[in-house]
Design a protein around this nucleic acid. Sequence first.
DNA 1: ATAAAATATAACCATAAGGTTATATGAAAT
DNA 2: ATTTCATATAACCTTATGGTTATATTTTAT
Lengths: 102, 102
Amino acid sequence: MSDIYRAISDPIRRQILNMLAERELPQLEIVKSFTISQPAIKKHLAILLEEKLVLERREGKYCFYRLNTPVFEVEYQRLQNEIGRILDNKLNRLKQYLEEES
Amino acid sequence: MSDIYRAISDPIRRQILNMLAERELPQLEIVKSFTISQPAIKKHLAILLEEKLVLERREGKYCFYRLNTPVFEVEYQRLQNEIGRILDNKLNRLKQYLEEES
DNA sequence: ATAAAATATAACCATAAGGTTATATGAAAT
DNA sequence: ATTTCATATAACCTTATGGTTATATTTTAT
């Protein structure tokens, strides 16, 4: 069911997702835009793949990565429901309190 | 600057945040609502405190926890900006592509 | 055929996470 | 004063994270 929380918990992975939102990229390009090693980037990509937020496509010696937009959309929606509800609860509580006051 | 990503990456912590959204609770109540041990819950609370999403208040032998609503609000806003932008980018790209088509 | 480029994998390391049990501490009740 | 209740802390364990360097492997270019 794709743990989006795990996927986005690391700033490098968030940055990668941002890059892939603009366009499909070969691993090379992603590696070049960070200072950490190629295997380190590979591991981040592996996690994004595991969580199905990213798709890969092999073309000759290049491996292209792209955002899995449908999955990302529904998972982000899930997150907003779960986390947003926390604040909604809080606001409803406050509203209720203010109503009881009057 | 409060790493909300770290805070919400664990389902138990998300559940705790939800409970605290409803009302302030003594640690006891939180512990009772899970099957894991008291020290385990304590560690989750320590992380939520570290990330400033939760506040604690001592009253006699009880330790009360409550949501740090202002911080939570701004941090969640941040998250929505950062993550939401990923989909915005994607949508803008699509829009642009469709416009170029015509 | 060889060299070079892009990616993959292995082995390693340090630290963080998430849990446990056992025990200490501090406050409240008997 | 002593027990009891709520919390804190210590010591330990296992697995996950996030990185490294070195070395395949695969594909393309010379």
